[in-house]
């Protein structure tokens, strides 16, 4: 595979074709924050926290590093005024939903985000989609999905699937940046199939 030379935060970086900016940055120890990224999953580009500045064709543009493929001669800045402003605002918006998320709080410190800037609307979920995509792509069970759209979007466990599949998996819980996935599951279980999923169904 051909080798691509690009610049990230002033460092010359050698990357392989097909890599994303995020991967190239990680390979040389440059950290770019992410909320919806997981190596095992197809990049999704929804949280926009990994937005970076890219000089391309004489213009500076903003792209999510998790999706943007490396190209010869790219000049990337993972921090800049614009980038930091974007990350700060997104964190402040998300903290209105999940003020206690450790991951969000840590990032808020770095970017000076005020967790009380916006009125609290505790949905607890920041809609990163890690649980939904992990369940679909890795486990191929589709036990959890998105409901509705826009600001009304939320995750929801599909009772028919979750009641059979989730009890011995629960692998999405630790992926969740806010622990809402677990809460949503427990609530679904309590309301729709109490006790049924905590242990295996009796053998035939």
């Amino acid at each position: 595979m051909s080798e691509i030379l690009l610049q990230i935060d002033g460092k010359e970086v050698k990357a392989a074709e097909g890599m994303t900016i995020l991967e190239a940055a990680q390979s040389v120890g440059v950290t770019i924050p992410t909320l919806c990224h997981l190596e095992k999953l197809t990049p999704y580009g929804a949280c926009r926290i990994c937005t970076v500045e890219v000089d391309i064709g004489g213009r500076t543009s903003l792209f999510p590093s998790c999706l943007y493929p490396v190209a010869e001669g790219l000049v990337v800045r993972t921090r800049s005024d614009r980038v930091d402003r974007i990350r700060k605002m997104i964190l402040e918006w998300q903290l209105a939903h999940a003020p206690d998320s450790e991951q969000l709080k840590d990032l808020a410190q770095i970017y000076g985000a005020d967790k009380d800037r916006f009125e609290k609307e505790p949905a607890f979920c920041i809609l990163c989609g890690l649980c939904v995509r992990y369940c679909a792509e890795v486990k191929k069970k589709y036990a959890v999905g998105f409901n509705d759209r826009g600001p009304r979007r939320e995750i929801a466990f599909v009772v028919e699937v979750a009641s059979k599949e989730c009890w011995n998996c629960k692998e999405c819980f630790p992926l969740c940046p806010t622990s809402y996935a677990q809460a949503a599951y427990v609530l679904t279980e309590a309301l729709a199939f109490p006790g049924r999923s905590s242990e295996p169904l009796p053998a035939e």
Binding site: A46, R48, Q94, R153
Partner: peptide, 14 residues
Amino acid sequence: ESCGKCAPCREGIR
């Protein structure tokens, strides 16, 4: 009409 996938659109509009 926002699909709600990405945070800036969903949260910004809200």
